[in-house]
Design a binder for these strands. Sequence first.
DNA 1: ATAGACCTTAGAGCATACTTTAAGGTCAAG
DNA 2: CTTGACCTTAAAGTATGCTCTAAGGTCTAT
Lengths: 139, 139
Amino acid sequence: MKIGDLEKLSGISAHTLRYYEKEGLLKPSKRGENNYRHYSQDDLITAKFIKRSKACGFSLSETSSLLAIKNDKSHHVCAEAKQITGVKVKEIEEQIQRLKQMQATLIQLERYCCGGEESAEFCTIIDALENGNDITGGE
Amino acid sequence: MKIGDLEKLSGISAHTLRYYEKEGLLKPSKRGENNYRHYSQDDLITAKFIKRSKACGFSLSETSSLLAIKNDKSHHVCAEAKQITGVKVKEIEEQIQRLKQMQATLIQLERYCCGGEESAEFCTIIDALENGNDITGGE
DNA sequence: ATAGACCTTAGAGCATACTTTAAGGTCAAG
DNA sequence: CTTGACCTTAAAGTATGCTCTAAGGTCTAT
């Protein structure tokens, strides 16, 4: 299939597919005489692999590492895949914690502000940002 | 105080302070004869305001809007500050939900993988990414 | 007066992951 | 044989928020 077909079947734009190729993630199995890219069913699987990997939060570089395992399974072990996954679990956990901390602060800010048409002279949100009041972990 | 002093007192690097100035967030109250930036106590408050705002997850652009309120309170109302905060609360909530979804998937992947020195031939992580098995919201 | 710390500017570089542009070649239908 | 859809490349642009570099001016202490 040509790049437009893979675009439709994988849901990844042709532009992005070319970009992934440049980054070494997905090489078309061959080129036609006209130099057009030709993709196989295996390439489609790889494209979907990339998409799922990204949906799990893996970066392109991490996805590359996972693809390297997929593409040469007998020379790789489960430990590698599990390690990459474990690192990502920790990273995402940290990100979630950071966001929750922000969220808690924001919700405090939101709760105390009247939100009306009063002058911002005594706005608790502005005041908190200005003076560090009520900002968790503030100063 | 000079930029190096503000750097120490605010914890924002001189480079970044100049960047913020270029972006219109924090202008030094005056320039010396030697063209050095001179910051006032008020500028220090503004610098800390920016830092707290960023800690809450606000972008520089959003921080700009909040600063505009802070710098001219009588011409702004609480509703503006609360609206900005409310939008951010929703954004962060969505981000957390996305990350939690990823996390759930990743933990499934991690759980089922033996993680040993076995060949990746039958690795459940690679298999799931390849075939969409067990990937929540997959395909 | 000279070393070293500090300041100035404009502009480039970094990181990630695309997205778009420009300029052009190929192919199938009518 | 031309139109329009599709393909090609290299390179630049987008977004965010810095971070660094180069080349040079200023200030303070000895």
